[in-house]
Amino acid sequence: MNTLDTLDSQTAEALSQHNNFNVVYCVLLVIFIGILLYLVRLERKIARLEKSQS
């Protein structure tokens, strides 16, 4: 097997791994966690506000 043939099989292998649905779940998870963390920050601000009010 020469180098080009190895490259050939590697590319074919890479092409066959087409099912990249997981990346969609990862993206949604990142967005969800990001918004959640921001909401937690806002929540803390509200708690501080309530504390200063009372």
């Binding site: 087409h18 990249n20 649905f21 990346v23 969609v24």
Partner: peptide
């Protein structure tokens, strides 16, 4: 190349 990840157009 995109295949299933084309759905990220709605989220990214």
């Amino acid at each position: 190349v995109l295949n299933e990840s084309v759905r990220n157009l709605f989220y990214h």
